[in-house]
Design a protein around this nucleic acid. Structure first.
Length: 482
RNA sequence: GGCCCCGUCGUCUAGAGGCCUAGGACGCCGCCCUCUCAAGGCGGUAGCGUGGGUUCAAAUCCCAUCGGGGCUACCA
């Protein structure tokens, strides 16, 4: 049987990291098994679903490179893959279920239900609604024709239990005492998640449902529903949840959870995929770094970890740095040029572009986030607005400051040719004549040309900045000293 | 409250009875390299929640206990 899996987010929010991990695992499982990866939109919550969120999800799935074979915006033999387009189908299934006794119109009021639960809670028993509040059969037809408000509930067989083998959690058993007669059709005739999701899983031939553990307790409902439809239930795999540093389910409270925020922060999709894969799964052989294709080659749902994982932005950033350092210089330029120009508020001239190309390899080694690049190269393309205060105090306000600048200016002004090697030679010579050590002699020059004690390697910076500009900056810094 | 899941360094994990005086990675600390910052190299810090069993032998099996999490909507 061909593997068919789906990632079915509801567009009631942007794509967040936890969902992305679920998507990734579905994707890896599909690719590892020559299966089909489907993207579905579970948008039955019409009040909270928006096109904007839907768009955000699609966009970031693509950004991550998690291409789907069938589904939203791509099509396939099952239509639009949006549940809001299939209400007729869900209603049809619901009515079939009513017809064969698997479901029923329910007239229990919220107040009644509330006291039912309250009583169960006080008695220490299960609060799952068992249908016991319903009117006599004899009255039902009349209530319906009177237009009395009713929902449709699934009739959970009682007594009974549902067993299934979860790929990551092994044998699961749920006593039906714990499963309520859940609503499948709301009083306005729209389907609930349980119905729509299960009908789609059945109709679309989903073989494996890989989703978050928050749905583990709902699984008996889905299995019961599929069986009532005379279908074979899918095989389930429930992934542990992603946690914030406080151990609670990862949410907005913990900072950024929107994939867009990570993209804007300068994270690479490859690094994110790699990191997310590590959260709950391991590559084995003490390996941490793996491309998507390597992951596909090794992926095994059975070895996915059962325990919840705390999302650690620091490790993600480290991985991002690994990926950045691993890039070709041209690629690095290609992926950062726009943010540098954004920062400048203009595009780079041809000469400036050459300068950027020249410094790129040096900056690449020092970058963890793409967005940090602008900070590191800005000094090349614009005058120094103001020297970093701490840097100035640390090296310029010292006795060596003026000594170093004067000596540097004097050796550099007559230097030919203007190359990194020559510059280094001249400045090291300056060290000897002034008796300053490298730190004391070079740091003032660095601050003069870059505005900070932290910059890419000095000699290269000088070469790339150019002789005229270098001397001008040294002179200016010197003039600003007391 | 009820049901379910989970429990190895701060964090992610390896570990499927002896290979474990518990391995790797991030982080942190130190040293080296060094023109700053990174990167890199080397070294260090730190963990099997607890209590009982089973066994010649337990991180690995069993029980209990404690702790954390999830679900308990006409949300998904």
């Amino acid at each position: 049987m061909t593997v068919r899996v789906r990632f079915a987010p509801s567009p009631t929010g942007y794509l967040h990291v936890g969902a992305a991990r679920t998507a990734l695992y579905n994707y890896l499982f599909a690719r590892a098994n020559d299966g089909t990866f489907i993207l579905r939109s579970d948008d039955t919550d019409t009040a909270r679903s928006t096109d904007e969120f839907q768009e955000d999800i699609l966009e970031h799935m693509q950004w991550l490179g998690l291409e789907w074979d069938e589904g939203v915006a791509r099509g396939g033999e099952h239509g639009s893959y949006r549940q809001s387009d299939r209400y007729g189908r869900y209603r049809e299934v619901a009515h079939d279920l009513i017809a064969d006794g698997s479901a029923y119109y329910s007239f229990a009021t919220p107040d009644q239900l509330e006291s039912f639960k309250q009583a169960a809670r006080e008695a220490g028993t299960s609060p799952a609604y068992d249908g016991s509040l319903e009117p006599l059969d004899a009255d039902i037809a009349r209530l319906i024709s009177d237009g009395e408000s009713a929902v449709v509930r699934f009739r959970v067989p009682r007594p009974g239990e549902t067993r299934f083998t979860d790929i990551v959690r092994d044998e699961m058993v749920f006593d039906h005492k714990q499963v309520d007669d859940f609503i499948i059709l709301r009083s306005d005739g729209t389907p609930t998640y349980h119905l729509a999701s299960t009908v789609d899983d059945v109709d679309y031939g989903i073989t494996h449902v890989i989703r978050g553990e928050d749905l583990l307790s709902s699984t008996p409902k889905h299995i019961l529903l599929a069986e009532a439809m005379d279908a074979d239930p899918a095989t389930y795999a429930h992934l542990s949840l992603l946690m914030g540093p406080d151990g609670k389910k990862l949410s907005k409270r913990h900072g950024d959870t929107a994939m867009s925020a990570y993209r804007e922060a300068g994270l690479l999709p490859e690094a994110i995929n790699n990191y997310l894969a590590l959260l709950g799964w391991s590559l084995g052989d003490d390996e941490e770094i793996a491309s998507i294709s390597e992951m596909i080659g090794k992926f095994d749902l059975n070895s996915v970890s059962k325990n919840p994982a705390v999302f650690d932005p620091q490790k993600l950033e480290w991985l991002n740095g690994v990926y950045i350092r691993d890039m070709d210089d041209e690629e690095f330029v290609g992926r950062t040029l726009a943010s540098v120009e954004d920062d400048l508020g203009r595009s780079l001239s041809g000469g400036e572009r050459a300068q950027f190309d020249a410094i790129a390899p040096l900056v690449k080694e020092r970058t963890k986030l793409l967005t940090e690049v602008a900070d590191q190269v800005r000094f090349l393309f614009s005058d120094i607005d103001e020297y970093d205060e701490k840097s100035w105090a640390k090296v310029m306000d010292k006795p060596e400051g003026p000594v170093a600048l004067d000596a540097a200016a004097s050796v550099l002004s007559v230097l030919e040719p203007w190359t990194t090697e020559a510059i280094e030679g001249a400045l090291r010579g300056m060290l000897e004549s002034t008796g300053l050590n490298a730190r004391k002699g070079f740091q003032p020059v660095r601050v003069a040309i870059s505005g900070s004690t932290v910059s890419p390697p000095l000699f290269e910076c000088l070469e790339i900045l150019g002789k005229v500009e270098t001397l001008a900056r040294i002179a200016r810094a010197r003039s600003e000293m007391k």
